[in-house]
């Protein structure tokens, strides 16, 4: 994942973009925790809110996969198919780790 290129596409300097990516990872951790808890407890309200939050920040930063997967969660809530969300959550976490690694490479 080329964070520098994504940042440039957004008209941001690399240092500014990396700062925002760091903020994204912090909020994504919170959203992902909320999603996991809500899947277990079947809390549809929390699922919708957390998916909306994750979708919003991922979409604007150009992390299209997480954006798309968050929309899948919203759809699953609407269609009452929460059972299908295991692989979706795994995929989201894998992409998040990818971003984390890309960030570490750029900042070290």
């Amino acid at each position: 994942m080329d964070l520098k290129a994504i940042g440039e596409d957004l008209g941001l300097e690399e240092s500014e973009f990396l700062e925002i990516v760091e903020l994204f990872l912090e909020t994504a951790d919170i959203d992902i925790d909320r999603l996991k808890q809500a899947i277990i407890s079947g809390d549809r309200q929390t699922l919708t809110e957390a998916a909306h939050s994750l979708k919003g920040s991922a979409g604007n930063l150009g992390f299209t996969e997480i954006y798309r997967l968050s929309k899948e969660i919203e759809a699953a809530v609407r269609e009452n198919t929460l059972d299908s969300l295991g692989p979706v959550m795994e995929a989201i976490e894998a992409f998040k780790v990818g971003i984390q690694k890309a960030l570490e490479t750029r900042t070290t």
């Binding site: 925002i20 909020t27 920040s57 930063l61």
Partner: peptide
């Protein structure tokens, strides 16, 4: 905006202008 990432993005972009 309740989303901190969006607030940061918009702030940085507009501050530059």
């Amino acid at each position: 905006d309740d989303n901190p990432v969006n607030r940061a993005m918009m702030s940085k972009t507009l501050q530059k202008e």
